[in-house]
Every structure is written in C-alpha cells, then in structure tokens.
C-alpha cells in the first residue's frame, strides 16, 4: 500500500499548488497532474476500466481548459477579510474531519468489502445469459445506473449549448 500513500501525497501537493499558484496555466497543469496521479491510483488498485476513463477524461478536460477558457480575462477576486476566511476554513475543516472520523469508523476495512449485494450478483448472473459477470452487471443489473449517468451528461451538454450559443448574445460594437 506504499504506492497508494505516495500517490495520495503527490495528489495533495498538486492540489495545493493548483490552489496557491498565481499563474492560471500552471494551475491548470497542476490539476492535470492530480488527475493523472488518480488514474495511476486506479491502476494500482486493479481497476483498469476506471484508470482508462480517468486518463481520457483528464486529457479532454485539460484540452478544454487550456484551449477554450484560459485565454479569457478572468476576474480574480481577493476581497474579503483574511481572518474571516481563515477562521471559516478552519471551522469547516474541523467539522468535516469530526464527521468523517465517526462515519469512517463504521466502514469495513480497506480491501474487505461487504458482499451483500455483490453476492447476489454472482449467484444470479449465470441465469441471465450474458457472456460474463461484468457484462451481466453492467448491462442488466445496472443499466438504470448507466441511464442516469448518460442523463447527467446529456443535461450538462444541453445546458452548455444553451448558455454558450451565438444567438441571443449582444454584439459589442
């Protein structure tokens, strides 16, 4: 598990750099480094499916951020009291850590998942006629899950196309 810990430290460092650095391009690249490390983490945890998807999505979002949005002049607000911001951050962080401590105590140990639902998948999937268990889970038990995922993406696409359309924007002279 030493690789996972190293990757987590790398990701936290990348996220901190992305937040603190002044240059926007460096910030975007640091976010990309965090995503690539997450992809490596999926690969180490033996989920090549997710690793592939994370890698591809990371590259795509990096291209979109650099090509389409970074050249615009983004106003950067530094107003607000320093003491209020810092104290609010500390309070929320303490609250989150306290809740997470009690919530994570009830979870099973890392690597020993509860097999309540998964056991039913394994015993019932041969009766469905799928080629293997992964196909049975992905296309039979969790087809509604995939539908929800596609619905989220479809809604996002419609929203972006509605906001970023050409018609309806004022022409500046």
């Amino acid at each position: 598990m030493i690789e996972i810990n190293l990757l987590l430290i790398f990701m936290i460092a990348g996220a901190l750099i992305a937040v603190r650095v002044k240059d926007l391009l460096s910030s975007v690249i640091a976010v990309g480094a965090v995503g690539i490390a997450l992809s490596l983490g999926f690969l180490i945890l033996k989920a090549p499916d997710l690793a592939m998807m994370q890698l591809v999505v990371e590259i795509l979002s990096l291209i979109i951020l650099i090509r389409a949005t970074i050249r615009k002049d983004i106003p950067f607000s530094m107003s607000g009291g320093w003491t209020f911001n810092t104290s609010a951050t500390i309070v929320f962080l303490a609250l989150f850590l306290a809740v997470a401590f009690f919530a994570l105590k009830g979870m099973p140990v890392f690597g020993n998942a509860l097999m309540r639902v998964s056991g039913a998948y394994i015993t019932q999937s041969p009766a469905l006629g799928a080629k293997n268990i992964v196909a049975a889970i992905m296309l039979n038990f969790r087809a509604l899950d995939t539908l929800g995922e596609a619905t989220v993406l479809f809604t996002a696409i419609v929203g972006v196309l509605a906001v970023a359309r050409k018609i309806g924007h004022k022409k500046e002279s």
């Binding site: 795509l60 291209i63 979109i64 090509r67 389409a68 949005t69 050249r71 615009k72 799928a130 080629k131 196909a135 296309l139 039979n140 087809a143 995939t146 995922e149 596609a150 993406l153 479809f154 996002a156 696409i157 972006v160 196309l161 970023a164 359309r165 050409k166």
Partner: peptide
C-alpha cells in the same frame, strides 16, 4: 443490449463533448 447500449452511450458522450468544446471555442473572443 450488448451492442446498442454502448453505442448509444458512445454517441451521447462523444458528440456531446465535442459539441461542448466547439461551443466554448466559438464563444471565446480572443
């Protein structure tokens, strides 16, 4: 289902992300 569900999802995701990229590129003034 084994053919049509991935093809439909591929069409939604692929064309949709390309549409988002196109819209953002066309929107940027620079």
């Amino acid at each position: 289902c084994e053919i049509t569900i991935p093809i439909c999802e591929m069409a939604i995701v692929g064309f949709g992300l390309f549409a988002i990229f196109t819209a953002l590129v066309l929107l940027s003034k620079t």
